[in-house]
């Protein structure tokens, strides 16, 4: 009996000690093969096994079951990263609970051993335990009821489509652009040839960098307040707006879009979005009100050059530029 208590308190102590002391030490941001949360987690059962065998504590099966169950709960709740949604959490815990039950009911002996303390508590052979359990459980029930009835108000979740389907055409400054075929008139060469060229320094040397410099100039006059000096969507006003401004460094934004899509989004801004994208909250200006068509294309050219992403095209970039060479400088537009 005494040993059971020792084993129980060692378990509680180990969990607390590990969670509050060792976890912050081992869960460092940079991944390492030794210092990470999973290695940390494995150390807990190892410690428990070593302590229990080392001191010959021989915990009863019910306590072992409790430890196993709690360790599972701890793993899914605090260790597994990234955190899982609660529906999945419940599914996992049901499986884990069934597993624990299978373990204790593996044969009649262990099952009887597991039941014994429970039955003894109920019929009053463990007097103190019965008083404690029978007093605590109704209080717990009362508390849970209170918590459930207490009115709580959390801001409603709003879902929105980040990249809505573009229209077939868009009219900017009197010209109708077919998004299917529109090209950036300033993409006159392969962007990768200018990895080691620099705005301002090389602006006089070639046309591509001249356009990048002009695009960047506009970006840093107009766009950086939201999209940030690093194009990472963390500009000085970015925290104010909801939805938060797009992060162009992220592979999920301009890296997966065509330039014509960007042209449409930049020109029409928040008010040009369909309802699924909550146009009423977007702080993106309809840039056609503030910029010329040429300036919009140059900003787009700059954004790809700065981030190093390549715009999505239907063909390879080479053939995209090749076509330009064949057809002469495209305007990408037709008067409509």
């Amino acid at each position: 009996m005494n040993k059971t208590f020792i084993s129980f308190f060692t378990f509680v102590g180990t969990m607390l000690g590990f969670h509050y002391v060792l976890f912050p030490i081992m869960d460092i941001r940079e991944f390492s093969w030794v210092m990470n949360r999973y290695v940390y987690y494995i150390l807990i059962p190892i410690t428990l096994i070593v302590v229990n065998i080392g001191f010959r504590l021989k915990p009863p099966i019910s306590l072992i079951a409790l430890m196993v169950w709690v360790l599972g709960y701890y793993f899914y709740d605090a260790i597994l990263f990234p955190p899982i949604p609660w529906t999945l959490f419940i599914t996992y815990m049901v499986m884990w609970t069934i597993g624990t039950f299978l373990y204790i009911s593996q044969d009649a002996n262990t099952f009887r051993e597991f039941r014994a303390p429970i039955v003894k508590t109920i019929i009053g052979e463990y007097k103190i335990a019965r008083i404690v359990v029978f007093a605590l459980l109704p209080m717990l029930v009362g508390f849970v009821t209170y918590n459930n009835i207490y009115p709580k108000f959390q801001e409603p979740v709003e879902l929105r489509t980040v990249h809505p389907a573009p229209p077939a055409t868009t009219k900017v400054h009197g010209k109708t652009w077919a998004l299917e075929t529109a090209r950036n008139p300033y993409r006159i060469d392969n962007q990768d040839n200018y990895k080691n060229s620099f705005p301002f320094l090389d602006a006089d040397k070639n046309e591509y960098m001249k356009n990048v410099t002009e695009g960047g100039t506009i970006f840093f006059q107009e766009c950086h307040y939201c999209h940030g000096d690093q194009l990472n969507g963390l500009g000085m006003f970015s925290h104010v707006f909801n939805p938060t401004p797009a992060n162009f460094i992220d592979p999920g934004t301009i890296a997966m879009l065509r330039e014509s899509f960007l042209f449409w989004r930049v020109a029409k801004g928040g008010p040009g979005l369909p309802n699924e994208s909550t146009p009423w909250s977007s702080a993106m200006p309809p840039w056609e009100e503030h910029l010329t068509t040429e300036e919009i294309w140059k900003v787009i050219l700059f954004e790809f050059w700065y981030t190093g992403w390549h715009p999505r095209t239907f063909d390879t970039e080479e053939s995209y530029i090749g076509q330009w060479e064949k057809e002469g400088k495209p305007t990408g537009a037709y008067s409509g």
Binding site: P138, V141, G142, F143, T145, Y146, I149, Y150
Partner: peptide, 13 residues
């Protein structure tokens, strides 16, 4: 909020 928790507790007892 004031009468439900005791009722639930009594039921549980």
């Amino acid at each position: 909020l004031y009468y439900m928790p005791p009722i639930m507790a009594v039921v549980f007892i």
